[in-house]
Design a protein around this nucleic acid. Structure first.
Lengths: 191, 191, 191, 191
DNA sequence: CATGAATGAGCATTCATTCAT
DNA sequence: CATGAATGAATGCTCATTCAT
């Protein structure tokens, strides 16, 4: 018997993401996904119950991968500022290098596919950043007078905007701009 | 001869936005828009050449309205900080009060509806903010060492994130938080 | 505005019946019905919510028409035997002349389309025959010792079998055979 | 080499019949049959060339079994009335106890599966009853003035109707009703 | 202008059948 | 033989668009 080939799942994810990039989440159809993956439409239904589950599975996979990237190269032994910069830069680079995925996630977030449970899960992705902010407060780098949510928003919003400008080729994130941007963030959140 | 009833256009826009809010841009159909507007589908085609043009027209209308809101209450005679705060708060409030519109605009931006010309037009919406930043540089409030794009991203990204958190009921933008957030932005961009 | 053309419903019924005759209830598809009716598939969905409702509506229509035919030419003023013969012959002729319909109704009865309510409705079609049997009992023609259900089964089963034999060209229901068959039924149910 | 496991064929027949009972002949699919039989779909194609042949084989098997049941307990040495009653009751009980099979056979008869040859074969099943009728005519019990087809229809139709009423729980075939019904048949066909 | 019936291409999904293991 | 993954034509149904009224 031919055995289930789970590598097909990754292939389908890749094709779907490519299609979403070029035509938006509204533009994808099962037959386009099948064709882009060089599979028969029926085959998609062996690996995914239906279109909705395919989209959901893609969302979960991307979320999982993204979480892993945020903490890559992170070493809590290092001094606080270095730790923060690692996560800060990881987040910026993730959003630049995986822009398709980021766009998909945002479209998904405001689509009828998402469920409440999934929204809550998405919240958990923020935890590493909050952890850093709290460490900064404990170590006295960050003022305790400002709520973490606000500091979080200031950093994350900045990063997101920079990444989008970069991706749209309006303002490229070359290395010294990255450093400068981080210092700006640092200046804002520190005493 | 009856004349084209332009109030219908607003009605259609309102219905479409309502539908996009609840079902995402992928979920809208011409017949849903017609029903929500209490019109016949054929009538939609009197006012809009096709679905794409309807969506595009909606985008333009929203963009125009938004631009107007950004400068509401703006008086260049006032001192710089007050001017900046007016625009800053306008932008935040716009994004909170017209969240549906903001979501639509972002979904639209990454859909196959948008054209290059429209992307360029969207850029022009940023002009009032850039104008303020430049005035700040001239008046010596804002350091000239940092590029305006970066300062822009820091402010706009922060505002966007705050507004989204508010809309998702995670971190509400009560008045003193607005003031605090603005001061944070001010601290970052000023010398 | 083009106005809903309810004659299309009869056209669809006719086409569907024709298809069921040649391919069985299992063989019908919406696109076959559309093609046979010279309509677009979408048009079918203007008049019927879905395939199931189309089939159900056809069943109801046939049932209604059949009921009308059973009592055609029936005059309760006439002597009992003549009354019985009218209904008896009506039933036989109905089953011969509307054999397609009869076959459809039986296939429908044992399909997953039918509901309990519809089964009960089908029972009511038997009422005219039971009424006659009861009159026969009251007027002393039919023995009261035998339950009406049994007398009903004897007559109806006989008729059904004769009609089927006729339709399959195995034993044709020419006039004197009809008379003879009725006399056989009469002999059985009378004292 | 493993050898074709013919017990699987019976298993498949049983499963198919069960499915047809609950969902009608239109509702069966190869994968449902496979699942109900705890087999792989591919395995079905080892035993049956395709779906049509599976259905046809089932028809033949049922027909064969039915024929055997009709003459069970039949002893031509016994007096005519007893012989007739044996066959008559066998037929009734068959139709009650194997109602699923009977329903299948009728749906099959008016489906696109059946061929002319099979229709002719089905005719042969009637032979035992015709044989009895002819013996009755020779022995003087049954009038020769009435064609055997008509007598056959009268008996078979009656039986079929009684069995259906029983199966639908409308008129149960308890023993004294069976006797009474046979006597009614007997009265009709005898002089 | 306004209507909504009519159209048919296109969609998500199913299913008989094949085939690699 | 047995399996069930793979196929792709076919199905029920939707939807943007047209058109007769």
């Amino acid at each position: 018997m031919r055995v289930k080939d789970f590598s097909k799942i990754d292939l389908v994810f890749k094709s779907t993401l490519k299609l979403i990039k070029s035509q938006g989440i509204a533009g994808i159809t099962m037959s386009k996904i099948a064709k882009e993956s060089s599979l028969a439409t029926g085959t998609l239904y062996i690996y995914f119950k239906n279109k909705e589950e395919l989209i959901n599975a893609l969302y979960h996979k991307i979320e999982k991968d993204a979480s892993a990237r945020f903490v890559s190269g992170f070493n809590p032994e290092l001094p606080f500022k270095q730790c923060l910069k690692t996560v800060w830069v990881n987040y910026l680079k993730h959003r630049i290098n995986f822009h398709e995925e980021s766009i998909f996630m945002e479209q998904y977030y405001y689509s009828s596919y998402i469920t409440l449970a999934q929204k809550q899960l998405a919240e958990e992705m923020k935890k590493p950043v909050y952890d850093i902010i709290n460490r900064g407060k404990e170590e006295g780098f960050i003022t305790k007078k400002i709520e973490s949510e606000m500091l979080f928003s200031a950093m994350i919003g900045f990063i997101r905007e920079l990444a989008d400008e970069h991706t749209e080729n309006r303002y490229m994130m070359i290395n010294n701009r990255i450093d400068q941007a981080f210092e700006l963030s640092w200046k804002m959140i520190t005493n």
